[in-house]
């Protein structure tokens, strides 16, 4: 018995060693950025792996100003906020209808959204760009929110449909017998039950639109409409000589997302898993 126990402990330790090694690969580059954000440019060039000797906190002040992060973060919040609101309303209503097959052609709509989810952005980007340009909507944040909503919509609809499928039928039937209208069913009966789903969708759509690159970089031109990501990217050309400032800017980009993610990871993991596992 003793030897099998010893074997088990050894197996356990080696499993954790493998997992810790992989964790180092995942986090290493990020920790390196944090480390170097406190050094001077000369120190980074000398050795990017060394610990900082003096903490240059002023890197962060310079980075905040050159990256125009005060405008960038506000724009990012507006962009993600509008996208979340549009998707939550539209996808939960569609999810309710599709979960109960409440319209003719529900299956057709599902197949359509399946296609829309896998279609490349380059299939609709070019006509959309020139149409938006002729309407003078380049650099218009709400207009870009609408485009991002359309790209997030299929996944959000599938997720909400899954959450509505898990609501017991009796719940709606009981409310109907009591004379509730469709609106009352959705707002008073369904909404409280699917609210974890709404949070999951909001988190996934929020992260997607916050991180988006192809659509935002195409449609948001002009510094006033830059998101935090675009402001950060614009530093790469102008400030490429000073790595320390760039590293501090990267930390400004990374820290809020990591803190946010650690707080909400349960919803994110559940959503990702139920989206893929249940199809």
């Amino acid at each position: 018995m003793v030897s099998t126990k010893g074997k088990k402990v050894r197996k356990n330790i080696s499993t954790h060693l493998v997992l810790i090694f992989i964790s180092c690969i995942s986090l290493g580059p990020i920790l390196l950025v944090v480390l170097n954000s406190f050094k001077s440019h000369a120190e980074i060039v000398r050795n990017p792996l060394s610990l900082p000797t003096v903490f240059h906190f002023e890197n962060y002040v310079t980075a905040w100003e050159t990256g125009k992060f005060s405008t960038g973060f506000i724009n990012s919040m507006i962009l993600s906020g509008i996208t979340i609101i549009i998707v939550l309303i539209a996808a939960s209503l569609a999810g309710y209808v599709l979960a109960g097959k409440r319209i003719k052609g529900s299956d057709g709509v599902l197949v359509y959204f399946m296609m829309a989810m896998t279609v490349p952005i380059q299939l609709f980007l070019f006509p959309l760009y020139y149409a938006m340009a002729s309407l003078d909507l380049i650099g218009n944040i709400p207009a870009v929110s609408l485009i991002l909503s359309a790209t997030s919509m299929p996944l959000a609809v599938f997720l909400m449909r899954t959450f509505f499928l898990n609501v017991p039928r009796e719940l709606e039937e009981a409310a109907r017998i009591d004379g509730a209208s469709t609106w009352q069913v959705i707002w008073h009966v369904m909404r409280p039950v699917v609210s974890p789903g709404l949070i999951t969708v909001a988190v996934i759509v929020g992260l997607q639109s916050w991180n988006e690159y192809l659509i935002t970089s195409t449609f948001l031109q002009g510094e006033d409409s830059f998101t935090a990501t675009l402001g950060f990217l614009s530093m790469n050309g102008t400030y490429s000589s000073d790595q320390a400032i760039l590293m501090a800017a990267a930390v400004i980009m990374i820290a809020p997302i990591v803190i946010f993610f650690v707080c909400i990871q349960k919803y994110f993991v559940d959503g990702m898993a139920s989206g893929a596992v249940k199809g």
């Binding site: 995942s26 690159y213 950060f232 590293m247």
Partner: peptide
């Protein structure tokens, strides 16, 4: 959570991070 952190960061940030450091 550790393995998902690179996944939740923006591609723009990840790319700049690898490009520079």
């Amino acid at each position: 959570v550790i393995f998902l952190i690179p996944y939740v960061l923006a591609p723009a940030v990840n790319a700049m991070l690898w490009l520079n450091i």
